[in-house]
């Protein structure tokens, strides 16, 4: 899933200073799961903004709504009536969500309340880690389902490097060495011979930016 983090309140306040009526839009998919932009976070941000504006003696009218996915035009279209009543939109979606809303409602300014961080998974309750760099050239089948491109601090394809120590990384001793993890996983699978395989330098043009995928099926 896409992992995001809310911007500091001060930054959000500065972005929407000058508006009196705003619509705060949450997204019910990835950012709900990573506690950044779901229905609850929309309620909290809305309340915080009203308190902060009220404290400064300014009035702020907020309406709140959370749609299932901000990155789909059809779902964003549902907001049309609400958007007509406001001066600006504050989106708690990922970057794709913000841009979809901006595209559907071209005449209304849209502001991002989140910083989109990475594609990842939960490590434990309340902690998410990056697990995929969306490089477009996946080699997980040969590395025991552990990605060295993103989980090795150096992105080594032919690891481990000399800095691995008791399974930890020399760059950050808190983090596991990805190549040690790969070794242990392949050992369990009886496929340690894959450790000897040489990987040539990666093709960093596997995805040209901006990336585009067209489905073959109709």
């Amino acid at each position: 899933m896409i992992v995001a983090e809310r911007k500091p309140l001060e930054e959000i306040k500065e972005m929407i200073a000058g508006y009196k009526r705003i619509l705060i839009v949450g997204c019910g998919t990835c950012v709900t799961i990573c506690w950044a932009g779901g229905e609850k976070e929309v309620g909290i941000l809305s309340s915080q903004l009203r308190l902060a504006f009220g404290k400064d003696g300014n009035e702020l009218l907020t309406s709140e709504v959370t749609i299932e996915r901000q990155c789909e035009r059809e779902m964003v279209e549902e907001l049309r009536d609400k958007v007509q009543e406001v001066e600006a939109i504050l989106s708690l979606g990922c970057g794709a969500g913000v841009q979809t809303i901006a595209e559907v409602f071209e005449e209304t300014p849209v502001y991002p309340a989140l910083n989109t961080k990475f594609v990842g998974m939960p490590e434990r309750e309340g902690v998410w880690v990056e697990t995929c760099r969306a490089c477009g050239d996946c080699l997980l089948g040969e590395t025991g389902g552990i990605c060295p491109v993103v989980r090795c601090a150096k992105g080594l394809l032919n690891g481990p490097c000399g800095g691995t120590k008791r399974g930890k990384c020399e760059v950050d001793p808190e983090k596991d060495c990805a190549w040690t993890l790969i070794y242990r996983r392949l050992e369990k699978q009886g496929r340690l011979d894959l450790m000897r395989k040489y990987y040539p330098p990666r093709n960093f043009q596997a995805v040209t930016r901006p990336g585009k995928v067209e489905a073959l099926q109709a």
Binding site: S47, R50, L51, F53, G54, K55, G57, E59, L60, L61, T62, S63, E64
Partner: peptide, 11 residues
């Protein structure tokens, strides 16, 4: 007292 009185909370 808190600076917010009689609820700025308008929706």
């Amino acid at each position: 007292p808190t600076p917010i009185k009689n609820g700025g909370p308008q929706r």
